[in-house]
Design a protein around this nucleic acid. Sequence first.
DNA 1: AATACTTATCACCAAAAGGTGATAATTAAA
DNA 2: TTTAATTATCACCTTTTGGTGATAAGTATT
Lengths: 208, 208
Amino acid sequence: MEEKPEAGSQRNKARSKQRFLDAVGEIINTVGFSGLKVNDIARVAGLDKKLMYNYFGGRDELIDEYIRTKDFWTNVKGEENPVPTDGGRAFSKSMLLSQFDYVFKDEEMQKILLWGLLDDRKELKKLAQAREDSGALLFESITDPHFGDQAKRYRAVTALMVAGIYYLDIYASTQTTTFCGLDLKSNEGRQAVEEAIAFLIDKTYDAK
Amino acid sequence: MEEKPEAGSQRNKARSKQRFLDAVGEIINTVGFSGLKVNDIARVAGLDKKLMYNYFGGRDELIDEYIRTKDFWTNVKGEENPVPTDGGRAFSKSMLLSQFDYVFKDEEMQKILLWGLLDDRKELKKLAQAREDSGALLFESITDPHFGDQAKRYRAVTALMVAGIYYLDIYASTQTTTFCGLDLKSNEGRQAVEEAIAFLIDKTYDAK
DNA sequence: AATACTTATCACCAAAAGGTGATAATTAAA
DNA sequence: TTTAATTATCACCTTTTGGTGATAAGTATT
Protein backbone atom coordinates (compact mmCIF):
# COMPACT_ATOMS: atom_id res chain seq x y z
CA MET A 1 0.00 0.00 0.00
CA GLU A 2 1.13 3.56 -0.65
CA GLU A 3 2.01 5.39 2.51
CA LYS A 4 1.52 9.09 3.06
CA PRO A 5 2.61 9.47 6.65
CA GLU A 6 1.76 12.73 8.30
CA ALA A 7 4.61 14.94 9.38
CA GLY A 8 5.65 14.14 12.93
CA SER A 9 4.92 10.48 12.65
CA GLN A 10 7.50 8.26 14.21
CA ARG A 11 8.05 6.09 11.14
CA ASN A 12 8.71 7.61 7.78
CA LYS A 13 10.65 5.93 5.02
CA ALA A 14 11.33 9.06 2.98
CA ARG A 15 12.59 10.91 6.02
CA SER A 16 14.82 8.03 7.02
CA LYS A 17 16.31 7.79 3.54
CA GLN A 18 17.08 11.48 3.68
CA ARG A 19 18.74 11.02 7.05
CA PHE A 20 21.10 8.47 5.56
CA LEU A 21 21.92 10.82 2.69
CA ASP A 22 22.52 13.65 5.12
CA ALA A 23 24.74 11.44 7.22
CA VAL A 24 26.93 10.75 4.21
CA GLY A 25 27.32 14.46 3.61
CA GLU A 26 28.11 15.17 7.21
CA ILE A 27 30.75 12.46 7.41
CA ILE A 28 32.39 13.61 4.19
CA ASN A 29 32.56 17.11 5.58
CA THR A 30 33.87 16.25 8.99
CA VAL A 31 35.88 13.04 8.71
CA GLY A 32 36.46 12.50 5.01
CA PHE A 33 35.82 9.65 2.62
CA SER A 34 37.62 7.17 4.81
CA GLY A 35 34.95 7.73 7.44
CA LEU A 36 32.17 6.32 5.31
CA LYS A 37 31.84 3.05 7.24
CA VAL A 38 28.52 1.28 7.33
CA ASN A 39 28.24 1.40 11.09
CA ASP A 40 29.27 5.03 11.32
CA ILE A 41 26.86 6.20 8.66
CA ALA A 42 24.03 4.47 10.51
CA ARG A 43 25.13 5.94 13.82
CA VAL A 44 25.26 9.47 12.43
CA ALA A 45 21.88 8.95 10.75
CA GLY A 46 20.53 7.74 14.08
CA LEU A 47 19.05 4.65 12.46
CA ASP A 48 19.77 0.98 12.19
CA LYS A 49 22.17 -0.01 9.47
CA LYS A 50 19.75 -2.67 8.32
CA LEU A 51 17.59 0.09 6.91
CA MET A 52 20.48 1.17 4.75
CA TYR A 53 20.47 -2.22 3.11
CA ASN A 54 16.69 -2.28 2.85
CA TYR A 55 16.33 1.19 1.36
CA PHE A 56 19.44 1.55 -0.79
CA GLY A 57 20.84 -1.93 -1.22
CA GLY A 58 24.06 -1.17 0.61
CA ARG A 59 26.64 1.47 1.31
CA ASP A 60 27.84 1.84 -2.26
CA GLU A 61 24.37 2.43 -3.63
CA LEU A 62 23.68 4.93 -0.85
CA ILE A 63 26.82 6.82 -1.76
CA ASP A 64 25.90 6.76 -5.43
CA GLU A 65 22.52 8.22 -4.61
CA TYR A 66 24.18 10.86 -2.45
CA ILE A 67 26.39 11.88 -5.36
CA ARG A 68 23.40 11.98 -7.67
CA THR A 69 21.55 14.34 -5.34
CA LYS A 70 24.43 16.79 -5.50
CA ASP A 71 23.62 19.02 -8.40
CA PHE A 72 26.69 21.09 -7.76
CA TRP A 73 26.92 22.41 -11.24
CA THR A 74 23.67 24.29 -11.51
CA ASN A 75 25.30 27.39 -10.07
CA VAL A 76 27.50 27.76 -13.11
CA LYS A 77 24.87 28.15 -15.74
CA GLY A 78 23.71 31.39 -14.24
CA GLU A 79 21.37 33.54 -16.25
CA GLU A 80 20.31 32.90 -19.80
CA ASN A 81 22.93 34.11 -22.21
CA PRO A 82 21.75 36.62 -24.84
CA VAL A 83 24.94 36.01 -26.90
CA PRO A 84 27.23 38.73 -25.57
CA THR A 85 28.96 41.18 -27.87
CA ASP A 86 32.38 40.93 -26.23
CA GLY A 87 32.94 37.30 -27.17
CA GLY A 88 32.19 36.25 -23.61
CA ARG A 89 35.05 38.15 -22.02
CA ALA A 90 33.05 39.57 -19.15
CA PHE A 91 31.12 36.37 -18.70
CA SER A 92 34.29 34.22 -18.61
CA LYS A 93 35.89 36.48 -16.11
CA SER A 94 32.94 36.61 -13.77
CA MET A 95 32.39 32.87 -14.07
CA LEU A 96 35.97 32.07 -13.12
CA LEU A 97 36.00 34.58 -10.29
CA SER A 98 32.76 33.28 -8.86
CA GLN A 99 34.07 29.72 -9.15
CA PHE A 100 37.14 30.72 -7.21
CA ASP A 101 34.94 32.11 -4.49
CA TYR A 102 32.30 29.40 -4.55
CA VAL A 103 34.64 26.41 -4.39
CA PHE A 104 36.59 28.05 -1.59
CA LYS A 105 33.48 28.40 0.52
CA ASP A 106 31.89 25.05 -0.23
CA GLU A 107 34.08 22.42 1.35
CA GLU A 108 31.71 19.68 0.30
CA MET A 109 32.28 20.69 -3.30
CA GLN A 110 36.03 20.46 -2.72
CA LYS A 111 35.65 16.99 -1.32
CA ILE A 112 33.64 15.89 -4.31
CA LEU A 113 36.22 17.30 -6.69
CA LEU A 114 38.99 15.48 -4.84
CA TRP A 115 36.95 12.34 -4.74
CA GLY A 116 36.69 12.41 -8.51
CA LEU A 117 40.48 12.22 -8.68
CA LEU A 118 40.71 9.32 -6.25
CA ASP A 119 37.88 6.95 -6.90
CA ASP A 120 36.73 5.57 -10.22
CA ARG A 121 33.14 5.34 -9.07
CA LYS A 122 30.75 5.51 -11.96
CA GLU A 123 28.62 8.23 -10.42
CA LEU A 124 31.63 10.47 -10.00
CA LYS A 125 32.46 10.08 -13.66
CA LYS A 126 28.91 11.11 -14.47
CA LEU A 127 29.41 14.22 -12.38
CA ALA A 128 32.60 15.07 -14.27
CA GLN A 129 30.74 14.52 -17.51
CA ALA A 130 27.97 16.84 -16.36
CA ARG A 131 30.56 19.52 -15.73
CA GLU A 132 31.93 18.98 -19.22
CA ASP A 133 28.52 19.16 -20.82
CA SER A 134 27.76 22.36 -18.96
CA GLY A 135 31.02 23.93 -20.09
CA ALA A 136 30.59 22.74 -23.66
CA LEU A 137 27.59 25.02 -23.98
CA LEU A 138 29.66 28.06 -23.13
CA PHE A 139 32.52 27.11 -25.43
CA GLU A 140 30.51 26.11 -28.44
CA SER A 141 27.99 28.92 -28.40
CA ILE A 142 30.18 31.82 -27.36
CA THR A 143 33.94 31.52 -27.22
CA ASP A 144 34.66 29.10 -30.05
CA PRO A 145 32.94 31.36 -32.62
CA HIS A 146 34.71 34.39 -31.19
CA PHE A 147 38.22 32.93 -31.19
CA GLY A 148 37.96 31.08 -34.46
CA ASP A 149 41.21 29.25 -35.20
CA GLN A 150 42.49 30.20 -31.73
CA ALA A 151 39.55 28.49 -30.06
CA LYS A 152 41.66 25.64 -28.83
CA ARG A 153 44.11 27.93 -27.14
CA TYR A 154 41.31 29.67 -25.33
CA ARG A 155 40.03 26.32 -24.14
CA ALA A 156 43.49 25.38 -22.89
CA VAL A 157 43.79 28.68 -21.03
CA THR A 158 40.42 28.10 -19.42
CA ALA A 159 41.37 24.56 -18.52
CA LEU A 160 44.48 25.82 -16.75
CA MET A 161 42.51 28.45 -14.90
CA VAL A 162 39.67 26.20 -13.80
CA ALA A 163 42.07 23.46 -12.74
CA GLY A 164 44.25 26.00 -10.97
CA ILE A 165 41.22 27.42 -9.16
CA TYR A 166 40.14 23.98 -7.98
CA TYR A 167 43.58 23.04 -6.76
CA LEU A 168 44.27 26.35 -5.03
CA ASP A 169 40.92 26.33 -3.25
CA ILE A 170 41.37 22.77 -2.05
CA TYR A 171 44.93 23.55 -1.04
CA ALA A 172 43.77 26.59 0.90
CA SER A 173 41.29 24.53 2.88
CA THR A 174 43.55 21.65 3.73
CA GLN A 175 47.08 22.96 3.90
CA THR A 176 48.49 25.50 6.31
CA THR A 177 51.48 26.27 4.15
CA THR A 178 51.57 29.06 1.60
CA PHE A 179 51.51 28.35 -2.14
CA CYS A 180 54.08 30.22 -4.21
CA GLY A 181 54.48 32.40 -1.17
CA LEU A 182 50.81 33.39 -1.18
CA ASP A 183 48.55 32.87 1.80
CA LEU A 184 45.48 31.55 -0.01
CA LYS A 185 43.29 31.95 3.05
CA SER A 186 43.96 35.66 3.45
CA ASN A 187 42.12 38.42 1.64
CA GLU A 188 45.45 39.67 0.36
CA GLY A 189 46.44 36.34 -1.14
CA ARG A 190 43.04 35.68 -2.67
CA GLN A 191 42.86 39.16 -4.14
CA ALA A 192 46.20 38.59 -5.85
CA VAL A 193 44.83 35.43 -7.44
CA GLU A 194 41.64 37.18 -8.50
CA GLU A 195 43.63 39.91 -10.18
CA ALA A 196 45.75 37.34 -11.92
CA ILE A 197 42.65 35.57 -13.24
CA ALA A 198 41.21 38.81 -14.63
CA PHE A 199 44.57 39.80 -16.05
CA LEU A 200 45.13 36.50 -17.84
CA ILE A 201 41.65 36.41 -19.34
CA ASP A 202 42.03 39.95 -20.57
CA LYS A 203 45.38 39.19 -22.17
CA THR A 204 43.94 36.16 -23.89
CA TYR A 205 41.08 38.19 -25.33
CA ASP A 206 43.41 41.06 -26.29
CA ALA A 207 45.59 38.69 -28.27
CA LYS A 208 42.74 37.76 -30.59
CA MET B 1 76.35 -5.59 18.53
CA GLU B 2 76.63 -3.81 15.21
CA GLU B 3 75.79 -6.06 12.30
CA LYS B 4 77.39 -5.81 8.89
CA PRO B 5 75.82 -8.77 7.10
CA GLU B 6 77.39 -9.76 3.81
CA ALA B 7 75.24 -9.36 0.72
CA GLY B 8 73.29 -12.49 -0.03
CA SER B 9 72.83 -13.44 3.57
CA GLN B 10 69.38 -14.69 4.43
CA ARG B 11 68.78 -12.24 7.24
CA ASN B 12 69.44 -8.59 6.81
CA LYS B 13 67.68 -5.86 8.74
CA ALA B 14 68.54 -3.03 6.37
CA ARG B 15 67.34 -4.99 3.37
CA SER B 16 64.12 -5.92 5.12
CA LYS B 17 63.44 -2.34 6.07
CA GLN B 18 63.91 -1.34 2.46
CA ARG B 19 61.51 -4.04 1.37
CA PHE B 20 58.82 -2.56 3.58
CA LEU B 21 59.45 0.90 2.16
CA ASP B 22 59.32 -0.49 -1.37
CA ALA B 23 56.08 -2.29 -0.58
CA VAL B 24 54.49 1.01 0.48
CA GLY B 25 55.48 2.58 -2.82
CA GLU B 26 54.18 -0.33 -4.82
CA ILE B 27 50.84 -0.36 -3.06
CA ILE B 28 50.40 3.38 -3.48
CA ASN B 29 51.09 3.01 -7.18
CA THR B 30 48.85 0.06 -7.81
CA VAL B 31 46.03 0.16 -5.28
CA GLY B 32 46.13 3.62 -3.75
CA PHE B 33 46.30 4.92 -0.21
CA SER B 34 43.37 2.85 0.92
CA GLY B 35 45.41 -0.26 0.20
CA LEU B 36 47.97 0.51 2.88
CA LYS B 37 46.80 -2.17 5.33
CA VAL B 38 49.25 -3.70 7.74
CA ASN B 39 48.70 -7.23 6.48
CA ASP B 40 48.92 -6.24 2.83
CA ILE B 41 52.09 -4.23 3.24
CA ALA B 42 53.72 -7.21 4.93
CA ARG B 43 52.49 -9.57 2.24
CA VAL B 44 53.83 -7.38 -0.57
CA ALA B 45 57.13 -7.01 1.28
CA GLY B 46 57.28 -10.77 1.67
CA LEU B 47 57.96 -10.48 5.38
CA ASP B 48 56.13 -10.91 8.64
CA LYS B 49 54.18 -7.90 9.82
CA LYS B 50 55.78 -8.20 13.24
CA LEU B 51 58.99 -6.90 11.69
CA MET B 52 57.16 -3.76 10.67
CA TYR B 53 56.40 -3.07 14.31
CA ASN B 54 59.91 -4.00 15.39
CA TYR B 55 61.71 -1.90 12.80
CA PHE B 56 59.43 1.13 12.37
CA GLY B 57 57.10 1.09 15.34
CA GLY B 58 53.99 0.59 13.24
CA ARG B 59 52.36 1.37 9.93
CA ASP B 60 52.17 5.11 10.45
CA GLU B 61 55.84 5.44 11.22
CA LEU B 62 56.69 3.28 8.23
CA ILE B 63 54.61 5.54 5.99
CA ASP B 64 56.25 8.63 7.44
CA GLU B 65 59.66 7.19 6.69
CA TYR B 66 58.51 6.35 3.17
CA ILE B 67 57.46 9.96 2.61
CA ARG B 68 60.76 11.18 3.98
CA THR B 69 62.69 9.05 1.51
CA LYS B 70 60.84 10.65 -1.40
CA ASP B 71 62.92 13.62 -2.38
CA PHE B 72 60.59 14.46 -5.22
CA TRP B 73 61.56 18.05 -5.46
CA THR B 74 65.21 17.77 -6.42
CA ASN B 75 64.24 17.76 -10.09
CA VAL B 76 63.01 21.32 -9.94
CA LYS B 77 66.17 23.02 -8.87
CA GLY B 78 67.90 22.05 -12.09
CA GLU B 79 71.13 23.77 -12.95
CA GLU B 80 72.71 26.60 -11.04
CA ASN B 81 71.18 29.91 -11.97
CA PRO B 82 73.64 32.55 -13.22
CA VAL B 83 70.97 35.28 -12.76
CA PRO B 84 69.37 35.40 -16.20
CA THR B 85 69.05 38.66 -18.12
CA ASP B 86 65.43 38.12 -19.16
CA GLY B 87 64.03 38.26 -15.67
CA GLY B 88 63.60 34.50 -15.64
CA ARG B 89 61.16 34.38 -18.53
CA ALA B 90 62.79 31.45 -20.30
CA PHE B 91 63.52 29.70 -17.04
CA SER B 92 59.92 30.05 -15.79
CA LYS B 93 58.56 28.77 -19.04
CA SER B 94 60.82 25.74 -19.23
CA MET B 95 60.26 24.96 -15.57
CA LEU B 96 56.48 24.97 -15.92
CA LEU B 97 56.57 22.97 -19.12
CA SER B 98 58.87 20.36 -17.65
CA GLN B 99 56.65 20.18 -14.57
CA PHE B 100 53.66 19.55 -16.79
CA ASP B 101 55.53 16.69 -18.43
CA TYR B 102 57.17 15.31 -15.31
CA VAL B 103 54.08 15.14 -13.12
CA PHE B 104 52.14 13.55 -15.96
CA LYS B 105 54.65 10.72 -16.22
CA ASP B 106 55.30 10.14 -12.53
CA GLU B 107 52.11 8.71 -11.09
CA GLU B 108 53.71 8.29 -7.69
CA MET B 109 54.28 12.04 -7.64
CA GLN B 110 50.60 12.58 -8.45
CA LYS B 111 49.60 10.34 -5.61
CA ILE B 112 51.78 12.23 -3.19
CA LEU B 113 50.35 15.56 -4.34
CA LEU B 114 46.83 14.25 -3.88
CA TRP B 115 47.74 12.78 -0.55
CA GLY B 116 48.85 16.20 0.61
CA LEU B 117 45.33 17.47 -0.01
CA LEU B 118 43.67 14.63 1.85
CA ASP B 119 45.71 13.76 4.87
CA ASP B 120 47.08 16.13 7.46
CA ARG B 121 50.05 13.91 8.13
CA LYS B 122 52.95 15.90 9.46
CA GLU B 123 55.42 14.46 6.98
CA LEU B 124 53.25 15.56 4.06
CA LYS B 125 53.20 19.09 5.38
CA LYS B 126 56.97 18.99 5.50
CA LEU B 127 57.02 17.98 1.87
CA ALA B 128 54.74 20.89 0.93
CA GLN B 129 57.00 23.21 2.88
CA ALA B 130 60.02 21.84 1.02
CA ARG B 131 58.31 22.69 -2.27
CA GLU B 132 57.65 26.18 -1.00
CA ASP B 133 61.22 26.68 0.12
CA SER B 134 62.46 25.51 -3.23
CA GLY B 135 60.20 27.90 -5.09
CA ALA B 136 61.02 30.79 -2.79
CA LEU B 137 64.56 30.74 -4.11
CA LEU B 138 63.36 31.32 -7.65
CA PHE B 139 60.97 34.08 -6.71
CA GLU B 140 63.21 36.00 -4.38
CA SER B 141 66.37 35.88 -6.41
CA ILE B 142 64.97 36.29 -9.91
CA THR B 143 61.36 37.22 -10.54
CA ASP B 144 60.61 39.49 -7.57
CA PRO B 145 63.47 41.86 -8.47
CA HIS B 146 62.41 41.81 -12.11
CA PHE B 147 58.74 42.52 -11.56
CA GLY B 148 59.16 45.05 -8.79
CA ASP B 149 55.76 46.25 -7.60
CA GLN B 150 54.07 43.68 -9.81
CA ALA B 151 55.91 40.82 -8.11
CA LYS B 152 52.81 39.66 -6.36
CA ARG B 153 50.84 39.38 -9.56
CA TYR B 154 53.54 37.27 -11.09
CA ARG B 155 53.45 34.99 -8.07
CA ALA B 156 49.70 34.64 -8.38
CA VAL B 157 50.00 33.82 -12.07
CA THR B 158 52.59 31.18 -11.29
CA ALA B 159 50.43 29.78 -8.51
CA LEU B 160 47.53 29.39 -10.92
CA MET B 161 49.75 27.73 -13.50
CA VAL B 162 51.45 25.31 -11.12
CA ALA B 163 48.16 24.41 -9.47
CA GLY B 164 46.52 24.03 -12.87
CA ILE B 165 49.35 21.79 -14.05
CA TYR B 166 49.03 19.55 -11.01
CA TYR B 167 45.30 19.23 -11.30
CA LEU B 168 45.28 18.65 -15.04
CA ASP B 169 47.97 15.98 -14.82
CA ILE B 170 46.22 14.15 -12.02
CA TYR B 171 42.93 14.49 -13.86
CA ALA B 172 44.49 13.08 -17.02
CA SER B 173 45.73 10.02 -15.18
CA THR B 174 42.57 9.23 -13.30
CA GLN B 175 39.66 10.45 -15.39
CA THR B 176 38.58 9.26 -18.79
CA THR B 177 36.53 12.36 -19.50
CA THR B 178 37.87 15.39 -21.29
CA PHE B 179 38.52 18.66 -19.47
CA CYS B 180 37.17 21.80 -21.11
CA GLY B 181 36.79 19.63 -24.16
CA LEU B 182 40.50 18.76 -24.25
CA ASP B 183 41.76 15.20 -24.17
CA LEU B 184 44.60 15.63 -21.72
CA LYS B 185 46.07 12.25 -22.53
CA SER B 186 46.48 12.96 -26.23
CA ASN B 187 49.42 14.75 -27.80
CA GLU B 188 47.02 17.23 -29.30
CA GLY B 189 45.42 18.11 -25.99
CA ARG B 190 48.71 18.33 -24.14
CA GLN B 191 50.25 20.48 -26.82
CA ALA B 192 47.37 22.92 -26.53
CA VAL B 193 48.02 23.23 -22.79
CA GLU B 194 51.74 23.66 -23.37
CA GLU B 195 51.13 26.47 -25.82
CA ALA B 196 48.75 28.10 -23.37
CA ILE B 197 51.39 27.96 -20.62
CA ALA B 198 54.01 29.56 -22.86
CA PHE B 199 51.50 32.14 -24.06
CA LEU B 200 50.39 33.18 -20.59
CA ILE B 201 53.93 33.45 -19.26
CA ASP B 202 54.92 35.59 -22.24
CA LYS B 203 51.96 37.89 -21.77
CA THR B 204 52.76 38.29 -18.11
CA TYR B 205 56.34 39.23 -18.89
CA ASP B 206 55.28 41.53 -21.74
CA ALA B 207 52.95 43.43 -19.45
CA LYS B 208 55.84 44.48 -17.22
C1' DA C 1 -10.80 -4.03 17.26
C1' DA C 2 -8.83 -7.32 14.17
C1' DT C 3 -5.86 -7.49 10.10
C1' DA C 4 -2.30 -6.83 7.05
C1' DC C 5 1.49 -4.08 5.91
C1' DT C 6 5.45 -1.01 6.61
C1' DT C 7 9.05 0.72 9.37
C1' DA C 8 12.54 0.01 12.60
C1' DT C 9 15.45 -2.48 16.05
C1' DC C 10 18.05 -6.15 17.97
C1' DA C 11 21.03 -9.93 18.45
C1' DC C 12 24.11 -12.33 16.20
C1' DC C 13 27.54 -13.99 12.74
C1' DA C 14 31.60 -13.84 9.51
C1' DA C 15 35.36 -11.61 7.54
C1' DA C 16 38.89 -8.26 7.68
C1' DA C 17 42.26 -5.78 10.08
C1' DG C 18 45.42 -4.50 13.79
C1' DG C 19 48.55 -6.12 17.20
C1' DT C 20 51.73 -9.19 20.19
C1' DG C 21 54.15 -13.10 23.03
C1' DA C 22 56.60 -17.18 22.35
C1' DT C 23 59.85 -19.35 19.70
C1' DA C 24 62.62 -20.84 15.84
C1' DA C 25 66.51 -19.95 12.64
C1' DT C 26 70.52 -17.60 11.47
C1' DT C 27 74.61 -14.93 12.37
C1' DA C 28 78.25 -12.97 15.24
C1' DA C 29 81.17 -13.31 19.20
C1' DA C 30 83.51 -15.98 22.77
C1' DT D 1 81.89 -25.25 19.40
C1' DT D 2 79.50 -23.09 22.63
C1' DT D 3 77.20 -18.80 23.73
C1' DA D 4 74.87 -14.53 22.91
C1' DA D 5 72.53 -11.56 19.97
C1' DT D 6 69.80 -10.53 16.07
C1' DT D 7 66.53 -11.56 12.51
C1' DA D 8 62.39 -13.72 11.24
C1' DT D 9 58.15 -16.61 11.67
C1' DC D 10 54.14 -18.47 13.78
C1' DA D 11 50.08 -18.91 16.35
C1' DC D 12 46.86 -16.51 18.53
C1' DC D 13 44.12 -12.69 20.21
C1' DT D 14 41.22 -8.34 20.00
C1' DT D 15 38.87 -4.88 17.64
C1' DT D 16 36.60 -3.21 13.80
C1' DT D 17 33.68 -3.68 9.99
C1' DG D 18 30.14 -5.59 6.93
C1' DG D 19 26.05 -8.11 6.67
C1' DT D 20 21.50 -10.55 7.85
C1' DG D 21 17.39 -13.32 10.07
C1' DA D 22 14.09 -12.84 13.49
C1' DT D 23 11.10 -9.90 15.61
C1' DA D 24 9.07 -5.83 17.63
C1' DA D 25 6.63 -1.44 17.02
C1' DG D 26 3.96 1.61 14.55
C1' DT D 27 0.49 2.69 10.63
C1' DA D 28 -3.27 1.97 7.52
C1' DT D 29 -7.29 -0.70 6.09
C1' DT D 30 -11.39 -3.22 7.02
